[in-house]
Nucleic acid binder design. Structure first.
Lengths: 175, 175
DNA sequence: CAAGGACTATCTATCAACAGATAGTCATAG
DNA sequence: CTATGACTATCTGTTGATAGATAGTCCTTG
């Protein structure tokens, strides 16, 4: 993948984290990267293509990160909680899949499909790691909602407050 | 409040539930209501005004609903879980505050403030009802995230899966 | 009661800005 | 020579917002 193509996706990802699908334009992305909007169209013919590619990349990166972290810590709940915590405390604060997922009904087909794929991947992995479907849904909902809450309240500490239980599970100082 | 003004807010609310702040235009709202876009501007000078009014109304309605339900069932966790469940299973499926909260960084000031006020209200109420701040954050995150998950996956059953534990708390058949 | 003025709510018409997208051109590198 | 990747230029449609006209209503005042 060319440097420019990666830079376009990086810029789109950053803006999608803040404003979702409607939160970026080809012109803004072009300005961010330092090229013209028509050049963005060269790499990604439509806005739908660009957004779908960004979400897919995010899903792949997340999946790989989880696998890597599971080698160091065998507790899936703690690993996933920590991974989403990294997003909450990052510069952009949000997971683009969460932003898009909240407005899923207004998304182009391909983008909605990729977003759905992301959450499906999360859930399947949690189940594969030993959790019941119900527990997997609960954990994923809590860390996803914690992201939304922390973002809306403008307070990253809210993430830790909401996930305190998970962060301490089966290894915390007190139990 | 006039019928038209209410109809405008209803239409805006519906569209905000699906696409957030960028998910509706004055013209769409006008068409929904059966008036001209300039008439929408008459009632709500700017888009920011309209969105903020919708969120504030939603917060007030939610607060009243919770108070009413608490009279029938004293368990706050079950009451809040049920209230958000109503949203998940409604036609629009989403809470507009959640949709906007996820993209909070891209919102006009007044709208972001109202969204923040909604989540603050939820949390304050949960604490006033006896939960610890940490437990309140956990519950609110879980039901908020469950809304996002169910929406993204296009499966309302996901809400029940994620909140099974809460729905049964202290009163379920088995405990 | 009737006239005047203010207010309400809608309309038509229009604006500048911005959106996504396309066609065609040009330079460079293999 | 051709493929790549950027460019210029432009199109069409939509956006939020404003100005000005027009009726209808309501309150006041003579």
């Amino acid at each position: 993948m060319s440097d420019v193509k990666t830079a376009i996706m990086d810029a789109a990802e950053r803006r999608m984290q803040q404003g979702g699908f409607g939160g970026f334009s080809f012109r803004e992305i072009a300005t961010d990267v330092g090229i013209k909007s028509s050049s963005v169209h060269y790499h990604f013919p439509t806005k739908e293509d660009l957004a779908a590619a960004v979400i897919r990349r995010w899903a792949e990166y997340t999946s790989e990160l989880i696998d890597k972290e599971l080698e160091k810590d065998p507790d899936p709940v703690r690993v996933w909680t920590k991974a989403f915590r990294g997003t909450a405390f990052s510069e952009a604060h949000m997971c683009p899949c969460t932003v898009l997922g909240a407005a899923s009904q207004d998304l182009p087909e391909q983008v909605a499909k990729e977003v759905k794929g992301f959450f499906k991947m999360c859930q399947d992995k949690l189940v594969a790691e030993g959790l019941s479907p119900s527990k997997a849904a609960e954990v994923l909902s809590t860390i996803t909602g914690a992201l939304v809450l922390a973002n809306a309240l403008g307070d990253t500490a809210e993430y830790d407050r909401a996930t305190r239980k998970f962060a301490a599970s089966k290894r915390g100082r007190s139990g």
